[in-house]
Amino acid sequence: MRAAELSTAALLAVFSCYLMWHSVALPIGWVEEAGPGGGAFPFWLSLGMLVFSAVIFYRGWRGATPQGGSSEPFIDPDSRGILLVTVLSVTALIGLTHVIGAYASIFLFMLFYVGGVGRHRWYTTIAVAVSVPVILFFFFEIGMKIFLPKGITEPLFYPLYRIFL
């Protein structure tokens, strides 16, 4: 926990420097006739962020915050695995959406999470994995006319459009 506290404060400090570096692209001081420049608000506030991340780092270093003085692991070792699987599978879900589209990716994701992680019976898994994309399709595409990305699976939807739209 201590390591996480200190490295997060350090990361936030680096991030605020990065924000300041971006802000100076626009004037950060007073512009005649136009008031404070466009970069002023983000620049001075990022400077404040830098100050406070330094304070947080210092307090964490001295053990003044509960996390700074804690030797417990940042993430419970028992749940580390499931968290990692969750984050990676959601990342894969988003990544695959670019290639094979939202509906096919959601089907695979549900198959993996319900069947693989949850170890539910195969018929439960199939029922959930099929019904979720189908319900989403009717709700978004037919009901609200919002078209989710389909990637290379686009042609498969042509007949459905012909029926419902």
Partner: peptide, 20 residues
């Protein structure tokens, strides 16, 4: 409802809701 069904449902809803 088992958590392993609920959780992926919520992830999917979040992502689709954020895209919409």
């Amino acid at each position: 409802m088992p958590f392993t069904i609920l959780a992926p449902l919520i992830y999917v809803l979040c992502l689709v809701g954020g895209y919409a």
